[in-house]
Structures are given as structure tokens and as C-alpha cells.
């Protein structure tokens, strides 16, 4: 009863056509577009390397590139470090009930507008905002937090931290509890148990959590734009500026392809690292 027939194809074909038309199509067209030309504000289909030459030779593009890469990496490192104690607590020290509630609460932010949350931070972090008003009471500040890298990172964390905590918690909770007990029976200190047993066992999950954090930060334009001041712009902002003003879609496509290549490289490396078999001695 698993022969190929009208019934089987009805369930299989529509989405193939749909995704080729509206997912694969756009991506491939965007790659092709990076070789198009723009004359008199009109795009001409061609196969030229002009956009690539122009964009790759510009210093500001590379400034943006390294800035974006650096900020996303920083956000990934910070999110992973901040999340770990919380995930550790939820995985090992909390009740089943608390863990379920915590994960449910951490899912909520995904369904609240990231824009509105960012705007809220904008007001909270402002020169005369809530935080400066609070620490002003004890004679500190005011500090400039908006339009700084600090602001950008706060924005990134708003986007990524809940996800990183969830993914870390799930991967830590899956570590074999017997392994931990064995380590403790053999006299491992709690600290050593974490380093030598728990982290290696949960390695794949921890790396995947970090990877998701990186992808989200790397592609986000809201935090660097509204909280980071966009000077210099990150790559996503560069895409928006190039697209929205001046009709330079092919140049925007060059930036997008650069981003995709970077992401694929990093994703591939992370997955290799995550699932690499440990060499037995």
C-alpha cells in the first residue's frame, strides 16, 4: 500500500512546489541578483562581478562585517555564560514542576513583540530613563547606555537569552544522572564534576544553543539600530539601508550572501564540533 499513487502525491507534491517557488526560488534568485547591474535606478539581469568588487573593496563593508561578527560572538559568549548557572539550577537542583513552569515562562517572550520589548529597553536605558533614575537616588550616574555596544548586547540578549536557557536546560537535564553520581563517588569535587563530566556530556546541546544564539544575533537589525545607534551599521542594517534607499538591491544581495556563507561556515563548524566523536585514548 505504499505504491506511488495520486493519494501519496497529493500530500507530497504541493509543499515541494510551494517551497521551491517561495523559499528556494527567492534564495537562489538573491544569489543570482548579486551579479546583476543597476543602471538609472533599474536592475538589469547580467552576470558581472561589479557588485562584489565594489562591496568587497569598501572598508566600511568590512568594518560592518567584523563588527557584526564580533558583536554576535560576544552576545553568544555572554548569553551562554549567563544562561549556564540558571540552566544548571533548573536541570539539577529544581523540582520537575518548577522546571516545567520556568520553561513555559521562557517561551512567552517569543510571542511578545521583540520590537515593543526593544522600545521598552530604549526607554528604560535612556539618559533620564528608569535605570538612571534609580541609581541616581544613590548618587550614581547618569550613565550613557543607549547608542553603545552595551545597548546592542542588551537587545541581543533580550532576543536570545530565553532560548539559550531553554536549550541548555534541556541538554543538561538529559545528562545521565548515574554518570554524575559515579563521578562524585570517585571523589570529584562539584566544580570538577561540572567541568569533567557534565559539560562534556551535554556538549552537543550547549553548542547548538550557542549556535542558535549566534544566528539570531548575527541576523538581527533591531537591537543594533535602536539600542546600538547603528554607527557603524551592522550587516543587517547595511542590507536595509542599501535596499530601502537607492534601489541597490544587488549590493544588498552581496551582503546577504556574505552573511549566509558566514553562517553556513559557522553552523557547519559548530555541528562538526558538537557531534565529533571524542578520540579514545
Amino acid at each position: 500500500m505504499s505504491r506511488l499513487n495520486a493519494y501519496a502525491l497529493t500530500w507530497r507534491l504541493p509543499i515541494i512546489i510551494w517551497q521551491i517557488l517561495f523559499f528556494l526560488g527567492p534564495l537562489l534568485f538573491m544569489i543570482a541578483m548579486s551579479f546583476f547591474l543597476v543602471k538609472n535606478y533599474r536592475m538589469i539581469e547580467a552576470f558581472e562581478f561589479k557588485n562584489w568588487e565594489k562591496m568587497l573593496s569598501r572598508g566600511y563593508v568590512w568594518d560592518s562585517y567584523w563588527l557584526t561578527l564580533g558583536l554576535a560572538a560576544l552576545s553568544t559568549a555572554i548569553a551562554s555564560l549567563i544562561a549556564f548557572p540558571a540552566a544548571f539550577f533548573l536541570a539539577f537542583k529544581s523540582s520537575e514542576n518548577l522546571r516545567r513552569w520556568a520553561i513555559f515562562l521562557l517561551i512567552i517572550p517569543f510571542f511578545t513583540s521583540y520590537l515593543v520589548r526593544t522600545f521598552s529597553w530604549y526607554v528604560i536605558l535612556a539618559e533620564s530613563g528608569v535605570i538612571n533614575a534609580l541609581i541616581g537616588n544613590i548618587g550614581l550616574g547618569p550613565y550613557t547606555m543607549l547608542n553603545t555596544k552595551f545597548g546592542t548586547i542588551i537587545g541581543y540578549l533580550t532576543l536570545t537569552l530565553p532560548l539559550v536557557v531553554i536549550l541548555q536546560t534541556v541538554s543538561l537535564a538529559n545528562v545521565d544522572k548515574n554518570l554524575i553520581q559515579a563521578a562524585q563517588n570517585l571523589g570529584c569535587s562539584p566544580w570538577r564534576t561540572i567541568r569533567a563530566v557534565i559539560i562534556p556530556s551535554a556538549k552537543a546541546g550547549l553548542i547548538i544553543a550557542a549556535l542558535f544564539c549566534f544566528i539570531l544575533s548575527f541576523g538581527d537589525f533591531v537591537a543594533p539600530y535602536y539600542l546600538g545607534g547603528s554607527k557603524p551599521p551592522t550587516l543587517p542594517i547595511l542590507i536595509i539601508d542599501t535596499t530601502k534607499s537607492g534601489q541597490q538591491w544587488p549590493r544588498a544581495a552581496v551582503v546577504a550572501v556574505m552573511m549566509m556563507v558566514t553562517l553556513f561556515t559557522i553552523a557547519f563548524a559548530s555541528i562538526m564540533l558538537a557531534y565529533r566523536k571524542r578520540v579514545s585514548k
Binding site: F22, G25, P26, L27, F29, M30, M33, I215, L216, F218, G219, D220, F221, P236, I239, I240, T243, W249, A252, A253, A256, M259, M260, L263, A267
Partner: peptide, 15 residues
């Protein structure tokens, strides 16, 4: 897994 901003540009151009 593809950043939304990239999907946005790709879809704008293709559409």
C-alpha cells in the same frame, strides 16, 4: 534557520 532580514530581501526581490 535563515535570518529574517535575508529572507526579507530574497523574497522582496523574487516577488
Amino acid at each position: 534557520t535563515i535570518p529574517l532580514i535575508i529572507m526579507a530581501l530574497a523574497m522582496l526581490a523574487w516577488f
